[in-house]
Simulated assay, not measured.
Amino acid sequence: MAYQADLGNGQKIYLENRGTQTYVTLASSSSGQQQQSSTGIETGTWTQPPQLTQTPSGVNVEVFTQDGSRFIQVQGSSVSVSVQSPGSDRGDALPLRQTSNAPTLPPIEPMQPMQPMQPMKMGDMEMNLNSMEMRMGDMEMRMGKSTPNRSFCPQCGAKIEKSDRFCSACGYSLS
Results as ranks from 00 to 15, higher is better:
S37W: 10
E62R: 00
Q21G: 06
S29K: 15
Q33K: 07
T47R: 09
Q21H: 04
Q48G: 06
K12F: 11
V24G: 07
Q35N: 14
S38W: 12
I13P: 09
Q11L: 09
G40C: 06
K12I: 03
Y14F: 13
L52P: 00
Q48K: 13
A27L: 10
P56N: 12
T45N: 10
K12Q: 11
G19Q: 07
G19P: 10
N60L: 02
Q48H: 06
P49A: 12
F64W: 03
S28Y: 14
S37L: 12
Q36N: 15
Q35C: 12
S31E: 15
Q34D: 12
E42K: 15
S29C: 15
T22I: 05
S28H: 15
W46H: 09
P56T: 04
Q48T: 09
L15P: 05
Y23F: 11
T39H: 12
T25I: 07
Y14R: 05
P49R: 10
T20V: 14
T20Y: 14
I13K: 08
P56M: 06
E16T: 09
P50C: 03
G58H: 04
Q51V: 06
T45W: 03
T47Q: 09
T43W: 01
G32T: 09
I13A: 04
G19Y: 07
Q48A: 11
N60P: 02
Y14M: 05
I41G: 03
Q54M: 11
G58W: 03
T22Q: 04
Q33I: 08
I13N: 08
F64V: 00
A27Y: 11
P56D: 12
T53L: 04
T25K: 08
Y14T: 04
Q21M: 13
T45G: 08
S38E: 14
T43G: 01
G40H: 07
P49D: 08
Q35I: 13
T47K: 10
F64L: 01
T55R: 15
E62H: 00
T55D: 06
T43H: 01
E16Y: 06
T53P: 04
V61S: 01
E42V: 12
Y23H: 12
S37R: 14
T43N: 01
S37Q: 14
T55L: 08
Q11E: 14
I13D: 03
